[in-house]
Computed example of a mutant assay.
Amino acid sequence: MPAQLLGPAEIRSLAERLDVTPTKKLGQNFVVDPNTVRRIVAAADVRADDHVVEVGPGLGSLTLGLLDAAARVTAVEIDPRLAAELPATVAWRAPEAAEHLEVLNRDALRIGAGELDAPDALVANLPYNVAVPVLLHMLATFPTIERVLVMVQAEVADRLAAAPGSWIYGVPSVKAAFYGEVRRAGAIGRNVFWPAPNVASGLVSVTRHAPGAVDWEPDEATRARVFPVVDAAFAQRRKTLRAALAGHFGSAAAAEGALVAAGIDPRQRGEKLGVADFVRLAGVE
């Protein structure tokens, strides 16, 4: 039997009973529209044998929809009251799926590889204030995650999916592309949330690079070389790469030498380089 998804009345009742007031500090905006939940689950391409990890399940709106589609869901929730209540909510609205849910009362930014059993997908309404760090941490920590669909602030979604050359292309764009193909997957209106946020929301999809599809291995060693170069290149966006990378390579002359060796014009700026360029540049330090 499909789960009974939560609507505005159920969300408000749960919040009142738990004495939960959504806070800006935790970036909490609860989805109160069942059709939006169905849309997110469909866009995420959740499969019947998937182990899905959800970050920030809140009162369980999306969790219920994910349990309808996946074999298992692990929900990572930092708020102890919400984490404690989620199993009861699932038992109430989707009793047949209750045994397929695991809840971790943890900060997603601190969760380690041994705390999750090989998730296949990340699907989440990410807290706006930590959306990019959480996304990058989960991709780095769990290489088994093949597919991602996250709801984030629209401006952040645009930055994540931006292509080289765009004025909004920057550090988040490069670092997300390091792991996979990133694209915008839709827009979400403000009125599907309680409380309604002051900003629009967007869906972002990440499909992890298949083995051998790119010329780098997105592992810790490669990331440790590449990401500092990315950070340095965008720290002073108006400067040429020769100037912006002088501190990283030790001098402007050394930076120019590395850029030339990597086949990159030292007069260019960071927003012109794709992730493959940064990988190549990091490899010739």
Rank of each mutant, 00 (worst) to 15 (best):
E271V: 12
L136S: 06
S166Y: 04
P266I: 08
P211L: 13
P22F: 13
P57Y: 10
D120L: 00
A252N: 06
A176N: 11
V134A: 01
Y179C: 00
V229K: 08
P197Y: 12
A9D: 07
R223N: 12
D277L: 05
A210G: 09
L136Y: 02
N105L: 05
R242C: 04
L101K: 06
E155M: 10
A84L: 02
A94M: 08
T144Y: 01
G7W: 01
A176H: 08
L26C: 07
L18Y: 13
R190M: 02
E217F: 05
H248G: 14
Q4L: 15
I78M: 10
A233W: 00
A91C: 03
A213M: 09
P119W: 00
D277Q: 13
L86Q: 02
R208P: 00
P164A: 07
L26Q: 09
G114L: 05
G114C: 09
G180T: 08
V230E: 10
A75Y: 00
D215C: 15
A121G: 10
L67F: 05
L149M: 11
N191V: 06
S61E: 13
V230F: 02
A113H: 04
G7E: 08
V204S: 09
N191K: 15
T36R: 05
A163S: 13
I145M: 10
M138T: 07
I111T: 09
V229N: 03
I111F: 04
A213S: 15
Q236F: 03
P197H: 11
V230H: 03
V171H: 06
A44L: 11
F193K: 09
D120C: 03
F278D: 15
A243P: 03
M138P: 02
L82M: 02
Q4Y: 10
D19G: 15
R237A: 00
S201N: 08
N129L: 06
V150N: 07
S251P: 04
G58V: 02
E155S: 06
E102T: 14
M151E: 08
L160T: 10
A75W: 01
N29K: 02
P195V: 14
L5H: 11
